[in-house]
Design a protein around this nucleic acid. Sequence first.
DNA 1: AGCAGAATTAAGGCAAAATTAAGTGCTGAA
DNA 2: TTCAGCACTTAATTTTGCCTTAATTCTGCT
Lengths: 225, 225
Amino acid sequence: MKVLLIEDDELLAKGIHAALVREGYAVDHVARASEALAMVRQKDAAPDLVILDLGLPDMDGLELLPKLRRKDYDRPLPVLILTARDGINDKVAGLDSGGDDYLTKPFEVAELLARLRVLERRAGYGETAVIQLGKVSLDTASHRMQVAGGDEVELPRREFALLRVLMENPGRIYSREQLNSKLYSWDDEVASNAVDVHLHNLRKKTGSDFIRTVRGVGWLVEKNA
Amino acid sequence: MKVLLIEDDELLAKGIHAALVREGYAVDHVARASEALAMVRQKDAAPDLVILDLGLPDMDGLELLPKLRRKDYDRPLPVLILTARDGINDKVAGLDSGGDDYLTKPFEVAELLARLRVLERRAGYGETAVIQLGKVSLDTASHRMQVAGGDEVELPRREFALLRVLMENPGRIYSREQLNSKLYSWDDEVASNAVDVHLHNLRKKTGSDFIRTVRGVGWLVEKNA
DNA sequence: AGCAGAATTAAGGCAAAATTAAGTGCTGAA
DNA sequence: TTCAGCACTTAATTTTGCCTTAATTCTGCT
């Protein structure tokens, strides 16, 4: 699930960015309306959701909004609008009909995440309970995995967490440290090759070519097959 | 299934509370709107249904209604509204669209229970009164269970509540904390392995492979067989 | 060849879950 | 009102199987 974050306040952007990444979203961040339009027009890398802060330097946010939406999408592109708590609210509220939502600053990060989930659902991204990549599919509700017509296998906690991270962002390389921090809470960091072992055990189940190694950098699963 | 009862008449509240508990619901009871909002915001222990008496001391019930709903992001939160038989009815009826229901005082407890079941069903908890999964079927009205041509057994309250939660969302894993919050109300939280014991007793009746364990995560029943 | 990073393997510790049994309280019947 | 029986909780004990550790082998790169 790719999110385009349009926000010119560096600090705020950083915070939101971090929270989104932690939730497993892929995030593109831009600070100007023109860049935003460019991102939206990309063929294959277009975002699935937009978070738009009104009050950008180069264009009025409300002006940008219809342009974001106007593209020839197969889906409506849902926009979560961030706005200060003042008169602008009224205008924004009027826009709400479009399948978008808005949030007044200041807000809790948890609420932002919740609203995003609602938007996703409304836009027809059914609960992404099953991630399917190549011959491997992973059911995130039941923690079970299936390989190309084989039996369903239940994955233990850590293996599931690991595979989920990799499959939720196919094509992205995760370093050993990143995987460690995804699997372990900060206060129980692990001082050995536990991740390697879990990777090994996963590969026994997925087939050895599903998780690729990039020596010296990290691991990934391919975006397509 | 956890119900939040918002009612300032002590006597009435007591009666409803008892009836609900007898049915196997976990009940949280509050007398003021502010407390109600606090309950709804709880992460894992949020209620699944609300019974709201209009005419609270600290806030107009109709005012409270949208606030209740707004706070629940993941599912629509169904509300059963209790109201006196007078002019207010009209307004309430107008609100009905939201998937809620209302009941005019005085009413029979049996009717209240029936309406609750309707609300549950409408909110997508159980399609039907009988949930059937593999060789096990559960009648949510009579609390009876049947396994593959065996005899019908009546389940005790807690076992019923537990099995119901699991069977209403097959394929989904419930953690120990989640099950606890579904079975017990706030002021009665249990500090031991009661859930484990009920699971054990259920498995004696359903067969040991019907409820599956995901170690370190929780329990589930299979979506299909 | 040598080295660093990655893969493999096996074993032991340990936390989570299952099990059992006993005790408490409630309910309904005599 | 008392008593019997059931449901439920508590607590202690056993069992299970995941996770980590650590030692060793393998691989690709310089």
